[in-house]
């Protein structure tokens, strides 16, 4: 595969493409709470509960944005800036990856997969700092836990990216998407399947669904939630929204780049884009179903077994790289 960068850099920037790029970001902002709502609803249904309905996250956000902000006395400017940075990071990443269209749009060449990963990590780094900022015990414990887990998850993520680069000969997500659609042999090859499995484990780590996480608000088990315990009102809403968008972005990378690269708009027509949006929702609901099943049948582990799923994911990535070297 030749390097497609020069060709894509010379594309004329049309109004349509700018509109499409804005639509990608807007779609991420708008549809992220819907996916979260679907996951929560599925979990409740699987556990024979009734569930709050798939639109509950929108109502929650509406409620939070109409509340007052309470700020701890010990908090510094970091406390104010972290939610904004996190939210903006999650708005930036959808520009770099194929959300609706399978061809690059204006500013898509700002960064490759590694750049997207950097910005995703920057967002959660700021939240970790904000958790430490106010000096409360829960923020500290949440920040240290999420730091240790991301220290172990990051090398695997890099290995997955290396594996993608080795089989696609490119780090651009669009090239990977085109390659997987064009060549079913590559799609069914062991390298790709192992990368999908490794990334699936990373997906559960990054979206707070690892079997050591707790979805309920019990302080002993909290990881991601403990970092933002001090926030309230619109700032809390912003953080919630940012974490839903992070989940949406990771699902996008998983589906549109690795696992289900089909049904994307390839010409940028309005019909195609709307169809791609519906297809994205369907794909995400499928992945959410898989995540919920894994989350339900896997029993909770104690916290100090956090390294086991990550070691498994590391191993899968190593096997994928080995099989790209051979196959």
């Amino acid at each position: 595969m030749c390097d497609p960068r020069p060709m894509w850099n010379t594309l004329p920037m049309t109004v349509r493409d700018v509109v499409l790029q804005i639509a990608q970001v807007g779609f991420t902002i708008g549809a992220a709470p819907l996916i979260q709502g679907c996951i929560v609803q599925f979990e409740e249904r699987v556990q024979r509960g009734r569930g709050p309905g798939i639109f509950q996250p929108y109502r929650d956000l509406w409620k939070l944005f109409h509340k007052q902000i309470v700020v701890p006395e010990t908090a510094s400017w970091l406390f104010w800036i972290a939610p904004v940075v996190a939210f903006v990071c999650m708005m930036t990443v959808p520009m770099l990856i194929p959300v609706l269209t399978n061809f690059p749009l204006p500013l898509s060449n700002m960064g490759d997969i590694l750049g997207g990963g950097l910005i995703l990590t920057l967002g959660s780094f700021m939240i970790t700092l904000a958790g430490l900022d106010s000096g409360s015990a829960y923020g500290g414990i949440g920040s240290s836990r999420s730091a240790i887990i991301s220290i172990l998850a990051e090398p695997t993520l890099i290995l997955v990216f290396v594996g993608i680069t080795l089989f696609a000969r490119s780090m651009l997500p669009f090239v990977v998407n085109h390659l997987l659609v064009a060549k079913p042999a590559v799609y069914l090859g062991p390298a790709h399947l192992f990368l999908v499995a490794a990334f699936f484990i990373l997906l559960t780590v990054e979206t707070d669904k690892l079997p050591i996480h707790s979805s309920t608000h019990i302080e002993v088990y909290m990881i991601e939630e403990a970092r933002i315990l001090e926030y309230s009102g619109p700032l809390y809403g912003l953080l919630k929204w940012a974490s839903m968008m992070k989940q949406f972005v990771l699902y996008t990378i998983f589906c549109n780049v690795l696992a289900l690269p089909w049904f994307m708009s390839s010409r940028g027509l309005a019909v195609g884009v709307i169809g791609a949006g519906i297809a994205v929702i369907v794909k995400f609901v499928l992945v959410a179903g898989a995540i919920v099943v894994v989350d339900t049948i896997q029993s909770r582990l104690r916290f100090y077994r956090y390294q086991e799923p990550l070691a498994a994911s590391f191993l899968l990535a190593v096997l994928a790289i080995i099989s790209t070297q051979i196959g």
């Binding site: 069914l188 090859g189 062991p190 086991e308 070691a311 899968l316 096997l319 051979i326 196959g327």
Partner: peptide, 24 residues
Amino acid sequence: SPVVASIFSLIAIASLLLAFVMLG
């Protein structure tokens, strides 16, 4: 042929993975 080779490699790597299941 490529198809046969990919079937062989898939089976071989899947059995390696099962060895890792035992290890882990």
